[in-house]
Design a protein around this nucleic acid. Structure first.
Length: 809
RNA sequence: GCGGACGUGGCGGAACGGCAGACGCGCCAGGCUUAGGACCUGGUGGGGGCGACCCCGUGGAGGUUCGAGUCCUCCCGUCCGCACCA
């Protein structure tokens, strides 16, 4: 028989699959389809880390199993190839990002092949390939024509270290998500996508998705819808009267207002500043401008502000209300102005305390003792209104509505919904990305590049070191263009697009990767999409996943797609931690390299181990010692199959047959539920029984190999061949199970007395309640436990237990 | 601060509200072997008993239930998001 030489066998089957196009997929409307997708990787110079194969193995198992069940499965792979790391590396080494990226892709492809994944490589895509980004540019123009891409000067997040602007989503704790450099604000002319137009739809669409609840919540919070009222406070100066609207979700607290605060960037600040306060106010504004967001919004910061020396008129009481400016109010949210209600808002309370502003309670809980009400702190709960004129005595919920209605009646208020979500800033002042297809003409202004001129090629010969100016602006050849409208000399847009634009539509391209006339062909997208199973890291909860949903909705609205949610089912693999339980990182020296693992134990073992480690979605530490268990498992499969083949047994023992049917059921269901660990465990249990009691025949063997095949494809192919099959095991049918055989024939029934297990007995599976009760009462142990006490009640769960409740006397 | 996930042997982890610890690692004993490794068999939560068995056990404290690792309330701890959003 010989030992199982995984090195020779695995490479041989990988070659076989390539040569036979085993995993090539074509559209076939007569067959049911399944689109199983991994988030395509950024091909980094470090190669695969052990986290990649976790998700890839899961989707591979599902894909292989479903193919065997007769589904037409689309399972592609590609490269999110544009991006900063390659560019930064290229700058450091004085080489070109294109070369680096190619090299990295080669390495990734080698590693994925080594792990035996069943991708249809004929569909491979690369976002940095002009054949791809041509369509990224096409889609930019599509959005532009629909009024969803626009340019504006705006304060934007700037990372001085990366020398580029960042999307809100790429700023973490006031720092750049790439390099952790502190992010500052800069006023720049930038391109945006109008994501905010889709805020409500992005929110509503979440309901129907089979996604982790946590991810849905993160998207909900990110969109941050809040309903309230815009309330007008009137101001007046020498030039006449004007409105200062504030946004609040608590109109019921309107009579508790003791001041109004404007953000430092609010346009009315200057107008409302009294002459004798001007110097101090301007000093404050200057200071606020130089603060970073981190300094300004960090929670630990004490709130600061200055009074403007003027007042506004309260819309309902008519009383004058002093105006302040303070940088705890954000210019970018709501109206950039808030009403200060220190009695019922914690932020306002601390601000009022610090500056000695009055605190006026207008809502009290019905039972102050129960609610822990005290005037020594803000009360933010519900209650009954007082000191609020005609609204006194109302509950706060009703008051919200009544006060809002009163304001609307006298045109001093408007019901309004606000969102945290901002429009998506897509301009990047960097080289390694898709150029934005726009030219600027002195005569005709901003002009989209005509479709037939796409792609706008990224020039190779550019000094791409970042200076804050876009590197493309320094390429004369690139920068100089002719106006598509008038033919005069014009300037080309020199910024590139955020790489998240590339990845917002790649799943559509996979359906027709060689389509030359459009980004994707209708029939292909209609057949394959939406993605049925999508697997990838939770770090994309609000970036990629939100943008891809936005793109899909836009394309759907304009007739290019017949669906508006791209990913029906989403799962996030749990983080694989280092052996010490900490995050893997080079600096901690606890990184495990997949190449080493495959070299030592083989691809099948690597796959099996990662699936066996624990719950797919939980974080779990790597344990090199634990891998050997999976190696042993496969070695035992190898020897057991050989033994069984040589025995030439024709019948299987009934016990083993029943276990086999249970295992088929378990493995089939567990794969669909992402419970790969217990599926593997079931395969181990069956093998243990098979070797322990013997009695396996060739039929069992055939079924067993097919169950194992999605997990350990190389070994399964090799043994499939051994038992006499000519073609790939993946052309075989997935095994079926017989429900009656899968059911236990005989069950162990537990007998409890007052909640404690006192005995257990075997009974045929279908035994009725009376019989179970009778047998339970007969038990000596039960009698002993009863000690003559009276039986008050007997609960029977058929096939499981008899629970006797008895008095203790 | 808010939101979410989680807490089970020496370790990774299993358990439709119904036998806690499946499966794997590790460890112990035995077999095979010149020896070691590999492999095979058995054992392995804690405590007690010669033993059949008994008691205690799922972060802590309560509760619901015939029955709680699982459901509810509070507390402690770990991890992950968001964070002055008015």
């Amino acid at each position: 028989m010989g030992r199982y030489d995984f090195k020779e066998v695995e490479v041989r089957w990988q070659d076989y699959w390539d040569e036979n196009d085993t995993y090539a997929t074509t559209e076939d409307p007569s067959r049911k389809k399944l689109y199983v997708l991994d988030m395509f990787p950024y091909p980094s110079g470090d190669g695969l880390h052990v986290g990649h194969p976790e998700g890839y193995t899961a989707t591979d198992i599902i894909s292989r199993k479903r193919r065997m069940e007769g589904w037409n499965v689309l399972h592609p792979m590609g490269w999110d190839a544009f991006g900063l790391p390659a560019e930064n590396f290229a700058i450091k080494r004085g080489v070109h990002p294109k070369g680096i990226t190619r090299q990295n892709i080669r390495n990734f492809r080698r590693q994925l092949r080594m792990l035996g994944f069943s991708y249809d490589w004929s569909r491979e895509i690369d976002t940095s390939d002009p054949a791809y980004y041509r369509w990224t540019q096409w889609l930019f123009l599509f959005l532009y024509r629909k009024g969803l891409a626009y340019k504006k000067k705006a304060p934007v997040n700037w990372c001085e270290s990366c020398r580029t602007v960042l999307a809100n989503e790429q700023v973490l704790d006031g720092r750049c998500e790439r390099c952790s450099h502190e992010v500052t604000q800069k006023d720049l002319e930038q391109w945006f996508f109008r994501v905010t137009d889709y805020a409500d739809r992005l929110l509503e669409g979440l309901d129907g998705l089979d996604w982790p609840e946590r991810i849905k919540l993160m998207q909900q919070n990110w969109i941050g819808r809040s309903e309230g009222v815009e309330i007008v406070f009137r101001g007046e100066d020498a030039d006449g009267g004007f409105d200062v609207p504030v946004f609040t979700t608590r109109p019921d607290t309107l009579f508790g207002v003791t001041y109004v605060v404007l953000a430092p960037e609010h346009p009315a600040v200057s107008r409302l500043t009294a002459a004798d306060r001007r110097e101090e106010v301007e000093g404050y504004l200057r200071a606020a401008r130089t603060k970073t967001d981190l300094q300004r919004t960090g929670l630990e910061q004490e709130k600061t502000g200055v009074p403007l020396g003027s007042t506004l008129v309260h819309p309902l009481s008519g009383e004058p209300v002093p105006v302040w400016t303070a940088d705890y109010v954000l210019g970018s949210y709501g109206t950039g102005a808030v009403m200060g209600v220190p009695a019922h808002d914690e932020r306002d309370y601390s601000f009022a305390q610090r500056y000695g502003l009055p605190i006026s309670f207008v809502i009290r809980p019905e039972d102050e003792a129960v609610a822990g009400f005290t005037e020594g702190a803000a009360y933010t709960g519900a209650g009954i209104l007082s000191g609020s004129g005609e609204f006194d005595g109302l509950g706060s919920e009703e008051a919200k509505d009544r006060i809002a209605a009163a304001l609307v009646d006298c045109s001093l208020g408007e019901r309004k919904t606000n969102y945290h979500l901002r429009d998506w800033l897509i301009s990047r002042q960097r080289y390694w990305g898709a150029p934005i297809p726009i030219v600027y003409c002195d005569r005709c202004g901003e002009q989209p590049v005509p479709e037939e001129q796409l792609p706008v090629l990224l020039p190779d010969d550019v000094d791409f070191r970042p200076t804050g100016e876009s590197p493309l602006a320094r390429s004369e050849d690139f920068h100089r263009a002719t106006c598509p409208e008038c033919g005069q000399a014009a300037r080309r847009e020199s910024d590139t697009m955020d790489t998240f634009v590339d990845s917002s539509w790649y799943f559509l391209r996979f359906t027709s990767p060689h389509e030359g006339e459009r980004p994707f062909s209708d029939h292909a997208v209609n057949y394959w999409c939406p993605v049925d199973v999508y697997v990838g890291g939770a770090e994309h909860a609000v970036l990629h996943l939100l943008y891809a949903r936005f793109f899909t909705k836009v394309l759907c609205d304009h007739g290019l797609l017949p669906f508006e949610e791209p990913f029906l089912r989403l799962r996030n693999p749990g983080l694989i931690l280092g052996e010490n339980g900490e995050k893997m990182s080079k600096s901690k020296g606890n990184v495990i390299n997949p190449d080493d693992v495959v070299d030592r134990y083989g691809a099948d073992v690597m796959r099996l181990y990662e699936m066996f480690m624990g719950d797919f979605e939980d974080a779990k530490p790597w344990d090199t010692r634990g891998i050997v268990g999976l190696r042993r498992f496969l070695d035992r499969v190898w020897t057991t199959v050989h033994d069984t083949v040589h025995e030439r047994r024709e019948t299987v023992s009934p016990e083993l047959e029943r276990l086999l049917h249970r295992t088929v059921k378990k493995v089939t269901e567990d794969i669909e539920d992402f419970k790969f660990n217990t599926a593997i465990s079931a395969l181990m249990i069956l093998l243990n029984e098979w070797t322990r009691v013997g009695g396996g025949d060739r039929g069992l063997l055939s079924v067993y190999l097919r169950l194992l095949a999605p997990f350990a494809p190389h070994l399964a192919e090799e043994l499939w061949r051994l038992i006499g099959h000519e073609s790939s095991i993946f052309q075989a049918d997935w095994p079926a199970w017989d429900e009656t055989l899968a059911a236990e024939e005989e069950v162990e029934v537990v007998v409890q007395v007052n909640g404690k297990v006192r005995d257990r007995f075997l009974a045929p599976a279908g035994t009725d309640e009376d019989e179970l009760k009778r047998r339970a009462r007969e038990s000596d142990k039960v009698k002993n436990a009863l000690q003559g006490g009276k039986i008050k009640k007997v609960i029977v769960v058929r096939g499981r237990l008899v629970s006797i409740v008895a008095s203790r006397d």
